[in-house]
């Protein structure tokens, strides 16, 4: 399913003294099956942008095309449920949305709301639970008796069980330990690879953006500052640094080495392996 944002503008609390421009001049197309990372400073509008992707907020100007639906500014929209089923959002700290008595009921909540019969929803819950790496014996437990990391996984399973075609992730690993972080990021990537789920990730980690994404979108003060493949984006790291944004540690290291050693790298390295190989090559070339 293709998603497209056209000339989009969004203001919070329109027509009040508290009005606030959060997004403007947004043009963005997300093709089916891609993995897009959205990065940018706090307050740059990332979360607001995400909420347009399944009609949680409506643009105050411009339009959002989601599959065969168009949400346009100033028009009353009904029956957005269809869209919400296809575009699942994992919010920041998703464990805050848990509420049912048992893990199973909580995971089934989404699917049942979208009209899936109970028995089938339970089957989906089991599959989703396996995906997030939890065992079935917690199904009957209360979600509030779990550890923070487990709660996070249950909440994610609740979104996966809806079997969305597009999954939107707002900093899904904040507060987890390094292993938990890696496991969850790898899980989403695997899902994206295996089932071709379109994935949109908001993150502050340039390393994750570089490692997983096909395309990176950089937000700055409510509009899109740059977009391109990780390779393209990190080929010009100076632009990012100028805007006060981070670059992946590998790229940062390359810059330092270039300056100190007076050598040039042919391309930005996005993994430690690649960087080690390049450093070796560059140094050998330099010595000849």
């Amino acid at each position: 399913m293709r998603i497209e944002l056209k000339d989009l503008e969004f203001r919070y609390q329109m027509n009040t003294p508290f009005e606030r421009l959060a997004l403007h001049d947004i043009n963005l197309a997300i093709n089916p099956g891609t993995y897009v990372a959205i990065i940018g400073h706090t307050g740059s509008g990332k979360s607001t942008l995400l909420q347009h992707l399944n009609g949680l907020v409506k643009p105050t100007k411009g339009s959002v095309v989601i599959g065969d639906r168009t949400i346009e500014a100033g028009r009353k929209e009904k029956h957005l449920k269809g869209i919400r089923k296809m575009v699942g959002i994992v919010f920041q700290f998703p464990e805050h949305q848990l509420f049912e008595e048992t893990v199973e009921k909580d995971i089934c909540f989404g699917p049942i709301n979208f009209g899936v019969p109970e028995e089938e929803a339970k089957k989906k819950a089991r599959i989703a639970l396996k995906l997030v790496g939890l065992s079935e014996d917690i199904l009957e437990k209360s979600p509030f008796d779990l550890s923070g990391g487990q709660m996070r996984r249950v909440a994610i399973a609740g979104v996966l069980a809806m079997e969305p075609e597009v999954i939107v992730l707002d900093e899904p690993t904040a507060g987890l330990d390094p292993r938990g972080r890696k496991e969850i990021m790898d899980m989403f990537y695997q899902l994206h690879k295996d089932q071709g789920i379109t994935t949109i990730l908001v993150t502050h980690s340039m390393e994750d953006a570089a490692r997983y994404a096909d395309e990176i979108v950089i937000m700055h003060q409510g509009s899109i500052f740059q977009k391109g493949t990780p390779f393209e984006i990190f080929s010009q790291p100076e632009q990012l640094i100028e805007k006060g944004l981070d670059v992946p540690e590998t790229v940062r290291f390359q810059l330092k080495l270039q300056k100190e050693l007076g050598v040039r790298f042919d391309h930005p390295c996005l993994s430690v392996e690649d960087l080690a190989g390049e450093v070796k090559r560059v140094m050998e070339r330099g010595s000849r």
């Binding site: 292993r179 890696k182 290291f253 080690a276």
Partner: peptide, 14 residues
Amino acid sequence: GLDIPFSVKLSKSL
């Protein structure tokens, strides 16, 4: 369940 800093990783890989 922990990680190692980037420069340690890189130095090891080198």
